[in-house]
Amino acid sequence: MSRSVLVTGGNRGIGLAIARVFAEAGDKVAITYRSGEPPAGFLAVKCDITDAEQVEQAYKEIEEKHGPVEVLVSNAGITRDQLLMRMSEEDFSAVLDTNLTAAYRVAKRASRGMLRMRRGRLIFVASAVSMLGQAGQANYAASKAGLIGFARSLARELGSRGITSNVVSPGTTETDMVAALTPEQIDAMVQHAPLKRMARPEEIAAAVAFLASDEAGYITGAVLPVDGGVGMGH
């Protein structure tokens, strides 16, 4: 059956790859985006997920056109890298609000319909940095690590209602964000991974699709790394 799927930040990079894999499977896919022109083929809803009222309005539009969200992929995120001594409080707060607090907003709103249906999939896109840490990314690492505790708490809270809650933890991935780095920076990141390459967005999307599938119905509270082995042991 075609499900109602929402992917936040689904207009580019990993989010777009995730949206495409669900659409190709026949699901009704909505994406949120904050700026630019959204890709064709999805229900694109302009929404700043740091604004609770915009989140509410986005859900109303999605529910009206696709029905209650059955699969939520909380993917939207930002970086504002800086060493701790130079990191402003605004940069720290902005990353936490977009990457972590916004996940609370969209998950809380999605859970309303999932509880009524007594089924649902909550999937949070974190990062290998969440468990490894990274100099200059204290805000980003903290926000992504927070997603793991958040997802596992929801797994315990909502599991009896047929709702699973899991995390996908990507390593360095071929996206526009990474393309902006220097070749030296990219090479240094790749060398940390035993597989000696970056992930493709489609590989992250495949892991998300698996956690949303019937075959993953007994998996909850899990962190699925798609990082080329960089996070082994964590």
Rank of each mutant, 00 (worst) to 15 (best):
A188C: 04
G228R: 00
D97L: 11
R152Y: 02
T101V: 14
Q134Y: 11
Y218I: 09
T220Y: 05
E202A: 15
A142E: 01
Y218Q: 10
K65H: 08
G113C: 10
E24S: 14
V95M: 05
V223I: 09
G41Q: 04
V230K: 01
M198K: 13
T172A: 13
P183F: 02
Y104G: 08
G9W: 02
D227F: 01
V71K: 12
A23G: 06
K46A: 08
R119D: 06
E215K: 13
V190Q: 09
R116K: 15
A44N: 02
N139R: 10
T164M: 01
D91W: 00
V69I: 15
M232D: 01
I18A: 04
M87W: 03
Y104I: 04
L181R: 15
E61A: 10
G217I: 00
K144D: 10
M117H: 14
A145D: 08
G171K: 01
E90Y: 02
A110K: 01
G217V: 01
V208K: 07
S165T: 08
A94E: 13
A102V: 05
T173E: 02
G228V: 00
L132V: 12
E174K: 15
T175C: 11
R34S: 04
L16H: 12
D176S: 09
A180L: 15
L132F: 13
G36D: 03
K65I: 03
V190F: 13
E53W: 12
D214V: 03
R3M: 07
R161L: 11
A206Q: 12
E174A: 15
R197A: 09
A199K: 03
S213F: 10
A142S: 15
T172N: 10
T98H: 04
G146E: 12
S111N: 12
L100K: 00
A193Y: 13
V168F: 04
C47S: 11
A19V: 00
Q82T: 12
L100H: 00
P68S: 11
L43A: 03
A17M: 10
M85H: 15
Y104H: 11
P68C: 06
R12A: 09
L211R: 02
I148G: 04
E157L: 05
I204Q: 07
M1L: 12
S169F: 07
R197P: 10
R121Y: 08
M232V: 06
G67P: 00
V95S: 10
G162Y: 08
F22E: 02
M131D: 13
L96T: 02
S153K: 05
G15S: 08
E90K: 07
D176R: 07
L16M: 06
A25M: 01
K144I: 07
M198S: 09
H234I: 13
G9N: 05
S165D: 06
G171M: 03
L211F: 07
R118H: 13
N11I: 06
Q82I: 06
E202Y: 13
R105Q: 13
N11Y: 09
S143K: 01
A151C: 03
V178I: 15
V230H: 02
V95R: 08
A40V: 07
A151T: 00
A205H: 09
V230C: 01
V125A: 14
A25C: 05
